[in-house]
Write a protein that binds this DNA or RNA. Structure first.
Lengths: 337, 337
DNA sequence: TTGTAGGCGTTATCAG
DNA sequence: CTGATAACGCCTACAA
């Protein structure tokens, strides 16, 4: 039951009584073929079901017109789908395809093993989507001749990097709340193993300190609405808590519910901000102010740099942190005097 | 600035003073190489930065160990990410990679054009993820020697097909509500161009008719919570409406909110059911009964059939509709007497 | 307009 | 244990 080899140029040539070269010309739409010959060839192609061989073509041309993407952990994590969509669209526009692998992180996968796996696939460049810390991140050396972009907030000495600006995200939110007159901002963090969560927490601390405010105790959730509710129930009991920054929208929603259940109004008594702007179409009335990232743009940037012809050797690689936009809704107001 | 060719077996062979064949043996972990020779070769590989060529390998072996996936329209549509994840995981387990392209449907893309594009890429089999009706669906002929799976509810004369069972979904929900004693079930449909929405609507009609119930007027939303709210506001004014089936969870949520705002309690006065079970981790307290599909399983099935060695020729192709599971929560109860 | 020769990187096969 | 040869499908370069 071995799969039969598909028809090759030579097969068509034999069937049409011409040379393989002529068939190649027809396949590539050269105009220097006599119409009748071309017709004969096309006929043979149809009958035998000719399809150009990707392997033969790439071997000859020395490139694949394909970008490789390694997703660490979990394709389904928030934002990944839009990054993937951004990469795919950019690739399509550039006439390229995308080769995707998923890296299991249970065994502390390193960039090196990902690079090895991807490099054996048809790729002219590669993109690593990092959502958790990678081992030996800084020591990693990209493979010669294979441009490699890492999606991460960290700068890398040898590879271009791009990501949502997680630190900036916190600064935007904290500054916004302090500017409104709030004395401090409480924070509900996401899962500890998430880089995004860690950076947002760090940015929250920095932003407060930069304004001379001692960061209040941290609350930790797990991204779920329920964990936000629990955090909110806790915070509702703290009178000086008038502003809460939750690391995603589900937790922000939970916080709001808990506050309401405890008799504290949003935004009159407490302001609440989330991240991702993910509930706008889900909730019938989304009232939660949220910081929205453009993950498609991140994906597009990654693609463009992964397929760049020649990375200017010797320069420091590009590093791009894309700022988010604060979508203002009704969950935020100045504190009551 | 042409990209230099990467080192080949021959280059390594030259550097190590052995034959290309020996280098190949080392690269493939053959045990019939003297350790010292192997060490010498490995050393040369390291210095020259050897990477096996996907093109060379595939050309020789006549296959790619890669499955192609064409996403029509919109990768980011609900469920697609889990299907993608299912395919990717199954592929990884089988030692395969995934080649992904996105098909633009603005120009009424057909299966044929998708097949053509995908078949020029490194694929041993392909999967089409259809979320909107395709032109000439039934006329489509798969390419010889390239197994092709279509993710759709429709049966195809030549290709294996798999999908969530959308008709069955409606029957499950409607029967459940009627069994509880409701006299009829109202339906809030999703976007008109969605196949899933159409089939759920059709299944809803069928299920009611099968039980001798005349389907009440249909309400149409656009998948958003807000559109559900509007439908719910309308339905709240209808006294005989005691059970509502919304085609997704966001609309179900909107329906519940609107009913509450109109003074009708859920589930005491009205029962509400959604589809997808997508809000469990988002809402702090998800009370909405919902039908959950296993999109990862759909993806896995598709992968396995796309990479099947020999589709038994002549047989009717496999057709699999995967049933969903009704996740029962507090939004459903028997009608008040 | 068409055909021939050669080589891209790899591996199966067979010879040493 | 190692090497030589040929072939996979295609395309560039050149020749007819």
């Amino acid at each position: 039951m071995a799969r039969p080899r598909p028809a090759s140029l030579a097969d068509i040539a034999r069937a049409a009584g011409v040379s393989a070269q002529t068939v190649s010309r027809v396949a590539n739409g050269s105009d220097s073929v006599r119409p009748e010959t071309a017709a004969k060839v096309r006929e043979a192609m149809r009958t035998l079901g000719y399809r150009p061989s990707f392997a033969g073509r790439s071997l000859k041309q020395g490139r694949y017109r394909t970008v490789g993407l390694a997703m660490f952990n979990n394709i389904t994590a928030t934002g990944n789908i839009f990054r993937l969509d951004g990469i795919t669209r950019a690739a399509t526009e550039a006439g390229c395809a995308l080769t995707l692998i998923e890296m299991d992180c249970t065994d502390h996968a390193t960039l090196t093993s990902a690079a090895e796996r991807l490099s054996a696939l048809p790729v002219d460049g590669m993109i690593f989507n990092l959502t958790r810390p990678a081992e030996n991140f800084l020591d990693f050396k990209p493979l010669a001749g294979l441009p490699m972009v890492i999606i991460t907030n960290l700068e890398h000495p040898l590879c271009p990097t791009v990501d949502n600006d997680q630190l900036g995200c916190s600064h935007t939110i904290v500054d916004h709340l302090l500017d409104l007159g709030h004395r401090t901002v409480f924070h509900v963090a996401g899962k500890e193993e998430s880089i995004a969560s860690r950076l947002r927490e760090q940015g929250w601390r920095e932003a407060l300190v930069a304004r001379g405010v001692e960061p209040p105790p941290l609350l930790r959730g797990d991204w779920s609405g329920m964990s936000g509710y629990e955090a909110g129930a806790h915070l509702a009991a703290i009178p000086e808590c008038t502003a809460i920054y939750a690391s995603n929208d589900a937790m922000a929603l939970g916080v709001v519910d808990a506050l309401n259940d405890a008799g504290r109004r949003v935004p009159e008594d407490v302001s609440v901000v989330g991240v991702d702007d993910s509930l706008a179409t889900v909730l019938p009335h989304d009232r939660i102010t949220s910081l929205r990232f453009d993950n498609r743009a991140v994906g597009r940037w990654a693609f463009e740099h992964a397929m760049a012809e020649a990375a200017p050797q010797g320069d420091t690689p590009a590093h791009c942190l894309m700022p988010g936009t604060l979508i203002q809704r009704e969950s935020v107001a100045p504190p009551a005097r």
